[in-house]
Design a protein around this nucleic acid. Structure first.
Lengths: 257, 257
DNA sequence: GCAAAAGTGTTTTCATTACACCCATGA
DNA sequence: TCATGGGTGTAATGAAAACACTTTTGC
């Protein structure tokens, strides 16, 4: 067994570079979108190289800030892609991340020629970026079921219709309005504000804000927060927790489910 | 935005090294154990450095083989720890993995002075290895709930009592025998063999083998396979899938839940 | 016969699902 | 007045949970 202190390069530590990719999701026009930048006759994810004096997380936030402005954005590590032949020439190990931004942040996308693409119709992508996006999408769908990450795709104030649309768009299935609202109510994860939104047409909608919920003591397995399985559903929360008015909260960086 | 092709070192790609750690779990004496090797006046996880010409996954398997022998072992990437000051001297980014081996493989641990430690009473650990183990444990607990990874901790033939013990030991809670067995039966994930096991004392137990289940088409969110939440439970599977005789199967490498 | 582990059903509870109509507003 | 999205309750289903006694073996 190699020494745990790893006293410097043993084999050829030669040419391994560590990079970071970020899959930035948002919702526009009732569809899930990903941010891409033009790259080598195709499109690619925002990325950057990890510097010797910075945390991998820092690199990810920098890559993100380059294209999506700063502000505090929800970001989580996704997976490390370490195949030898990922990049044609050099050896790059890439720590992929994914981020969720709300539709109002995205307008500040400012820099570069970066563009939002609907995940349903992606352009030709560089390297293995297609695979990374697929993976991020799977993770996002899973995570939607047992955490409250979904709110990261909404602005501070939103209607219950907005919220339901987030779920429907990502899961790809329509849900029953009454069941959805009942579950949200039951979970106690939103609070009505004093405002309403008049949307040009139709009855004005109550605006809500997200309420973080107390994390339970030491719970190993997350209980599905919003069920995403069959035909209609929404959350699924253990009766025990509900009685205590709690819900499992997954700390960012919880990795693969 | 940096170019997606990353034409070689841009900043100081100087001294970043990429390593791999593996948290190897097994069950001994009705307790979850982790494999550790002596390192620098403390103990450390099996590890190695990624070579320029090998996949990260390959490095992990090599580190694993060094201490636990070869054989095909269930292994999954856990998380990449990329803090600047993880290691005192050099800059090492570490791609942590975790592996599950059955109690019979572990006797072949052979090499080195590696030892099995109960997770409940770990020794002093090197670097951030304690944190990595904690993280792996959380992941294992979560994953137990909605996949069939638990079987990786058992030999090819096992009793239902063995299986239940795996769950109880990892989740840390006793379960009801009848409910457990009913759920396992319902899921159809085990098949009885022709053999029984006489264990010295008590009635002989039927031996079963694990049966992989058909993965459903394109399911995003996993349905809890074995519930791990409240006081007794076991599985929780969607009625739809159950009727079709299917269960969600998570492909290894599914990352953070 | 006794200690020890294996094996086996029923009832209650509660989350999930399915389902249809009225309300408030702008044009 | 009409088109559009917002808002609301109830009944059926089925998984999860609680619970105790009999069986088979070795000593």
């Amino acid at each position: 067994m190699p020494d745990t202190n790893r006293p410097g390069p043993q084999h050829e530590t030669t040419a391994i570079q560590v990079g970071v990719e970020v899959v930035v999701f948002t919702i526009r026009d009732d569809a899930l979108h990903v941010l891409l930048a033009p790259a080598a006759a195709a499109w690619g994810l925002p990325n950057d190289t990890v510097r010797a004096d910075e945390t991998v997380d820092t690199t990810a936030r920098r890559a993100l800030a380059d294209v999506a402005g700063s502000g505090d954005v929800w970001l989580e590590q996704l997976y490390t892609f370490g195949d030898v032949h990922r990049a044609p020439d050099s050896r790059i190990i890439s720590v992929a991340h994914y981020a969720l931004v709300s539709a109002d942040v995205l307008t500040a996308t400012g820099s570069d020629a970066a563009r939002w693409w609907p995940v349903a119709t992606l352009p030709l992508l560089v390297l293995d970026h297609r695979r990374i996006i697929d993976y991020a999408l799977t993770r996002l769908r899973n995570k939607l079921a047992y955490t409250t990450v979904g709110f990261q795709l909404l602005p501070a104030r939103f209607t219950l219709g907005d919220l339901q649309r987030v779920y429907e768009v990502i899961i790809g299935r329509d849900m029953d309005k009454r069941n959805f609202r009942r579950k949200v109510e039951l979970l106690g994860i939103v609070k009505p504000t004093r405002e309403q939104r008049v949307s040009g047409t139709g009855r004005p909608a109550q605006l809500y804000r997200f309420v973080a919920i107390e994390a339970p003591e030491a719970i190993g397995a997350p209980e599905p927060l919003m069920s995403t399985q069959p035909a209609v559903q929404l959350a699924r929360i253990s009766p025990v927790l509900r009685r205590r008015g709690r819900v499992i909260q997954i700390t960012p960086g919880e990795g693969t489910r």
